[in-house]
Design a protein around this nucleic acid. Structure first.
Lengths: 262, 262
DNA sequence: CGTTCCCTTGACCTAACTCAAAGAATGTGG
DNA sequence: CCACATTCTTTGAGTTAGGTCAAGGGAACG
């Protein structure tokens, strides 16, 4: 069922209604880096079997709470948040389906920031020991997870560049390109469209702008026919021009580019 | 030899002339996290024995070059740089004495950014195998290095917050507080003074501002008697107020606060 | 002792912010 | 299924933090 997305006159239904979200994003992501044996797949699946559902805008782990192990997002968008005393907030990472984040904070095993959901999420919390066991038995899993960690780090650096020296439009364009690639690697992109279950204020807090200015920049992107965005569904109308505008070079995500500009 | 630093009327000699930089910053840093046996210390020392000296403003590793293993800075300030096509630059990390950075970039073992010196540096490049060997024999070293990695990551997040939602003055104040703590953990702070062998433009490129505005913000910090800065030597005159201004909370560095405000 | 790099200052500009309020959606309870 | 409440998005008007350009003054370096 290929979609005709030539015109932004799009229906506003989600691309992936909750029921038909592709199964294990986690496996899909890991297998992009390493072939996994049937047992490895099973072991990984068991790890996340006890995942729980969280509504949107809910804290999964608050700053100061003791924490250990990893958190794995299976469905929905979550994020890492840091707060300032004046109430200002900064999102320092998006956690998409298949993403994991380490919770070990070293000596002091307490969160130094908050992890919360942006949309409704399904999230597994995996204790260190369980993870260690799997990783010890399945080196391929260890290797794949290590790749994820490297990518996460490269992404943090890329975000610093984004916020540090790009204009408002460029920042947003860059974010959209990044999300496209990350989501497509876990099968959550159809054509050039993906669900972006996030408010404009969330985007603002991610790229270091005000919500008003994000709104205006989005309109500029729409006017230039680079994107269509409504009802929390984003379509990239012109990948070529959008990625050029953002100076987006996907190598930091270590993903093969399977972007075909429709 | 305690210094009288009540007045910013300071002599402009470096705090640590090249000759008397404290020996192995690396060991000092690792031992802040883990006690090391004599053999472990020796093994680590051997690892960095082949360090080379680089002049200021020199690329150690350029974007696109194949790379592997780790880089360990023993003396001087280095940094990770990312460039934009228009020539704009963003520093995404400071590499201080004792800091290391992984060079494995995963599948594609190529640098996705450049590492260069800010001041003259002594840097060791350690191949994976050599490091692996040491780490395998000395779990304490592995553990300490793991801590460093977690701290590096937390620092990246903190920088995103810094650039994303603080004012110019706050950003610079935050950077100075961070550097103070990091340098003091490797014995490179005397009283409240440390060498900051970096231009104002470097600072600008670090915190996402223009050099002109950094200059003006520095003057504001001086006028408020929070810092003294001249001849590449920084003195924090009022840690209390400076860290409050920056909303600096040192926990992400996992260092015991041994800050005594003179 | 000249050259180069760095810091400083001034004048002007603009990208992005704030405040405020009106429409759209979306959700909720009756 | 409708009425109400809430949360988002959009728009307008005015402000400001920080940028740009340009040029002079120091300090450092070969």
């Amino acid at each position: 069922m290929v979609q005709a997305l030539r015109h932004p006159a799009v229906e506003d239904r989600p691309v992936f209604p909750a029921a038909e979200v592709p199964a294990s994003a986690l496996l899909q992501k890991l297998e992009a880096f390493q072939d996994l044996s049937a047992e490895a797949r099973k072991a990984v699946s068991r790890l996340v079997a006890s995942a729980k559902d969280y509504p949107a805008h809910t804290d999964i782990l608050r700053e100061g709470e003791p924490a250990d192990g990893v958190l794995i997002v299976l469905r929905g968008f979550a994020c890492r948040n840091q707060f300032r005393q004046n109430g200002a907030r900064q999102i320092t990472a998006f956690l998409l389906p298949g993403d994991h984040c380490r919770l070990e904070t070293g000596l002091i095993n307490r969160m130094d920031h908050t992890i919360s959901t942006l949309s409704p999420c399904r999230v597994a919390r995996v204790p260190s020991e369980a993870l260690q066991a799997v990783v010890r038995q399945h080196p391929a899993v260890r290797q794949a997870l290590r790749m994820c960690i490297l990518i996460n780090e490269a992404t943090l650096r890329e975000w610093i560049v984004n916020i540090g020296c790009r204009t408002a439009i460029e920042r947003i364009a860059h974010l959209f390109c990044e999300l496209h690639l990350r989501l497509s690697s876990v099968g959550l992109v159809r054509g050039m469209t993906y669900d972006l279950p996030v408010t404009q204020t969330d985007i603002a807090v991610t790229v270091g702008l005000s919500n008003v200015h994000v709104n205006r920049s989005l309109q500029a992107l729409r006017k230039q026919r680079l994107i269509a965005l409504s009802g929390r569904r984003l379509t990239i109308l012109d990948w070529q021009r959008l990625s050029e505008l953002a100076e987006f070079s996907p190598s930091y995500l270590q993903a093969e580019r399977r972007i075909l500009n429709g």
